[in-house]
């Protein structure tokens, strides 16, 4: 059975969640250093209370702690995002140059549209899209209902479309 207090098992938690936890905090602060420090504090808190946190609850605990710590921080800089470089080049596809230009334009518009989202819609949307966190887990981390998460995501989608169309 996995134990949160076991260094080996704890390292497993660390390696699995450190990236998405730092991302989560980055969506809040837009500041990499701040996200790094707060993520470290959250891990230290989990380690300190490891005997009270069962293995299955560790992830939720980690995000909840990070979320509470983040509430005390008021740095709101711009969240910068980028597209992952494609692994395989699109050489074999029959996509026309026009299509590729259109796609590049769309991707840029999407970045602008995300930037314009309200913070609580943005963070839920990015947690789902970038870190592939389930709605139920986002709800736990943000201390809201699953329904509320779905609403934020839905609203985010509508606003993104509106923004992209507006830029046509």
């Amino acid at each position: 059975m996995y134990q949160t207090c076991n260094e080996h098992h704890f390292s497993f938690i660390f390696k699995t969640y450190e990236k998405s936890l730092r991302n989560f905090l980055y969506y809040k602060f837009g500041d990499e250093d701040q996200a790094f420090d707060t993520a470290q504090e959250a891990f230290i808190t989990l380690w300190k209370h490891c005997s009270d946190v069962p293995w299955e609850k560790a992830k939720g605990y980690l995000f909840t702690v990070a979320y509470k710590k983040a509430l005390k921080v008021v740095a709101h800089k711009k969240v910068v995002l980028q597209y992952a470089e494609k692994v395989e080049p699109n050489l074999s596809t029959n996509e026309s140059p026009e299509f590729l230009i259109e796609e590049a334009q769309f991707k840029q518009k999407l970045l602008n549209a995300i930037d314009a989202l309200k913070p609580h819609q943005k963070e839920a949307f990015l947690m789902h899209r970038i870190d592939k966190i389930k709605y139920r887990e986002i709800a736990e981390a943000l201390d809201i209902s699953v329904k509320a998460v779905e609403k934020r995501i839905h609203q985010a989608m509508l606003n993104l479309k509106k923004h992209i169309e507006h830029l046509h």
Binding site: C5, E7, F10, S11, F14, K15, E18, K19, R22, N23, Y26, E32, D33, A35, F36, A39, Q40, F43, I44, W47, K48, H49, C50, S51, D52, V80, L81, Q82, Y83, A84, K86, F106, K107, L110, I114, F125, L126, R129, I130
Partner: peptide, 28 residues
Amino acid sequence: HSAELETPLNKDVSKMLATVLHSPKKKK
């Protein structure tokens, strides 16, 4: 396209785990 997004974070986290594991643990 939103699934292709990523954050630009590139700070070295290699020492973070060691820092955490050296922090005190509450006694059970």
